[in-house]
Write a protein that binds this DNA or RNA. Structure first.
Lengths: 212, 212
DNA sequence: GCTCAGGAGATTGTCAGCATTTTTGTTCGC
DNA sequence: GCGAACAAAAATGCTGACAATCTCCTGAGC
């Protein structure tokens, strides 16, 4: 049984969950004990995660969890804005009745989560919404890249959901995107998605000036 | 001396140069002889190139050079259009006199290459132009992703340059992009870049209907 | 007190070999 | 003649050991 793939997945999950803080050294031997596998599997995982941008590798000096600066998080979100507005337009072009109903359902759950201040649930719904749009777009290439970009900036995104007032603002932006997609209005869907992510950039930029 | 990185680079270059045709099996032992290194280095290279999308790996079944369908090439170019228009706008925002002169120089050389039907040189200048724009943008995240996208669709791009009349059309699109960037007009630069790449998509789409 | 050479320890890079899996080729039965 | 089971070959997955490299600490010299 080739364990190497599953090790990559588990390590990725652990990094994204913050179980390895940014800057932490990832010693191969320590990881072999943690995941009960050989160094070969760990090495393959580190190479893979390195090209995903989650891990930083230096020759003969080992691997560290990559630290994403606010400046880089801004660039990541800008790139996402470009790609997600593309697929939002496609999703609007491919809209069907059942898919539209799913989007509306997610929006309703988001509103409920915001009203009850369940910020963890809101984050999950946020991810679900964007994933659904990606699926609907049928644009596999852009969807993969967006998935990676989301992972890379995951830490900063998490802080966003804790900002007072932000979820309420965000949910209405999502509602606007959903409405445009359901209507089949490609241009408006693309613009709404772009505006949504650029508002995230705006907040990150304020953090950059006065970091929390 | 860690050879593994250089092996990755050489293998990538060989694949991009078409020395391994799409679909070719990449046997680890054969590659160790070709590049005079151990299997560990080859494996690391294959893992890396796999996550770059150049190589396809299946558990226990080895690696193959990934075959990029016309449909996928279209998606790749669409994603590039989204990202390159972003950085073209940034480049326009960062324009300086010496950088502008460099762009004009590249355009002049492109016109010469087209006039003398040196399609190989034209392809190189094309790559140089886009690389220059990426540098000027200062947007490292988008630049990296574009670099990867270009590699993945390299084979199709190459066919484009051999199309009669295409270089002449393409060089004027590049001139329009350069003019907008030099003028510092961010919106026009983004639009011109987007139009340029969408004209590539249009050609690919025609190929998809009636493959060569 | 400071700088720099040297060495010990820790960590990654590489290799050779074995285990496991897939594929191919062959033989047997119908 | 055809299909299924079985065996041999090929290729990848993985492990352990060794080599190369880097880091950090010590101590001598100035």
């Amino acid at each position: 049984m080739p364990r190497t793939d599953s090790v990559t997945d588990v390590l990725r999950t652990d990094i994204l969950a913050g179980r390895f803080p940014p800057g932490d050294r990832l010693l191969e031997i320590a990881l072999t004990e943690r995941y009960d596998c050989g160094r070969a599997a760990i090495r393959a995982a580190l190479v893979e995660l390195s090209s995903e941008g989650l891990v930083e590798r230096e020759a003969n000096r080992g691997a560290k969890v990559r630290r994403i600066s606010v400046e880089e998080a801004i660039q990541i979100t800008e790139a996402r804005a470009a790609l997600e507005s593309l697929i939002a337009g496609r999703a609007a072009g491919n809209i069907t009745e059942p898919h539209g109903a799913e989007l509306e359902d997610i929006i309703a759950k988001m509103r409920a989560a915001v009203a009850e201040q369940r910020s963890g649930d809101y984050s999950d719904l946020n991810a679900t919404f964007h994933r659904k749009v990606r699926e609907m777009s049928g644009h596999a290439v852009a969807a993969d890249m967006i998935d990676n970009l989301r992972n890379r900036a995951a830490h900063h995104q998490y802080r966003l959901a804790l900002m007072p007032g932000r979820p309420a603002e965000s949910v209405e932006q999502h509602a606007a995107i959903a409405d445009a997609i359901i209507t089949g209005d490609q241009d408006r869907a693309a613009t709404a998605m772009h505006d949504h992510l650029m508002s995230v950039v705006e907040i990150l930029r304020r953090w950059g000036d006065a970091p929390a």
